[in-house]
């Protein structure tokens, strides 16, 4: 029951130390990201522009709708909105991209022995490009509301690591599952929508402030419980803290965020490793 190949991933002469494998995997990742970047943004000025405009337009629509409907007591509401949408979009792009990545690379996986995990990981990393561009939109909104950036923004890379590790974990699991059941892809759209509403993107992240507007105690109680276990709740709060409130979250918050990320990644890796040898039979 085994196919043994010595030097599986380093086809170019020499032995295959693990360092060499890591280097060649990084090179593949780099090439794939650069491929996606060229495909999406080359020869389309609008491609870059859309990545900036999209969150701005979303923000405008949501501000129009929600500031008239609910009147939440939130300062700089459009900025509050755009920070939430942009961060959630990062997770959404990363997981959606990763989900179809194995199926899309079918022709390659059937022929060449490559680390299959590079495909979902690459898609998750690529979502960062879009995120970076939408930060331009965030910056514009900050200027508009005279929100001065503070020193606390240096924690942004740390937050991005949390969110990406978390997304890669989900992406690995989804990409493996969608090989066997294609309708995972449809299901995930619904999950994302529900998740979006359950995350304080347009409603107050301060649950006490929210309780004042919700009359039903039972609903409120359920929501508080859910938010405890909603990683995106913590990530969105983290993002707003460093971007608009000028505070760096404490050690406890960082540990919670890191724990969510690491546990999800571990689960994703287990699912992926258990199933990857069967991919070829289903793609």
């Amino acid at each position: 029951m085994s196919t043994t190949t010595t030097a599986p991933d380093a086809r170019r002469g020499g032995g295959s130390s693990s360092r060499q494998v890591v280097r060649s995997t990084l090179f593949i990742l780099e090439q794939l990201v650069s491929k996606d970047f060229k495909l999406k943004y080359r020869r389309s000025v609008l491609g870059v522009l859309w990545s900036v405009l999209n969150p701005l337009l979303m923000m405008a629509v949501m501000t129009l709708v929600f500031s008239n409907m609910f009147k939440f007591p939130i300062e700089n509401y459009p900025l509050y909105l755009i920070l939430g949408t942009v961060l959630f979009q990062l997770m959404s792009d990363a997981t959606n991209g990763a989900m179809g990545s194995i199926i899309a690379s079918a022709s390659l996986i059937k022929k060449v022995r490559v680390q299959k995990a590079v495909f979902p990981v690459e898609k998750a990393l690529f979502a960062l490009v879009n995120f970076a561009l939408s930060l331009i939109a965030v910056a514009a909104v900050m200027v508009f509301f005279h929100v001065v950036p503070t020193f606390s923004m240096i924690a942004l890379p740390l937050l991005l690591v949390y969110v990406l590790v978390f997304s890669i974990g989900i992406g690995l699991a989804l990409s493996a599952l969608s090989v066997f059941f294609r309708d995972v892809m449809h299901l995930w759209g619904v999950v994302m929508m529900a998740w979006n509403y359950l995350t304080p993107i347009f409603w107050p992240q301060d649950l006490a402030a929210l309780a004042a507007t919700v009359s039903n105690d039972g609903v409120m109680h359920a929501l508080v419980t859910i938010e405890h276990f909603n990683p995106m709740y913590h990530y969105v709060i983290y993002f707003r803290d460093i971007m608009m409130y000028g505070t760096i979250p404490g050690l406890h918050m960082n540990l919670v965020c890191a724990a969510f990320a690491v546990i999800t990644l571990a689960v994703g890796i287990v699912i992926f490793r258990k199933t990857q040898h069967k991919f070829i039979l289903y793609i």
Partner: peptide, 27 residues
């Protein structure tokens, strides 16, 4: 032999590096 498929039984060992000529379009 290329190592992308695992046999149900038996073994297949390849010594050294493999260069597969990829099917048109793949990759």
């Amino acid at each position: 032999i290329a190592g992308v498929l695992e046999p149900s039984s038996g073994t297949c060992r390849v010594r050294g590096t493999i260069a597969p000529l990829i099917e048109l379009g793949a990759g």
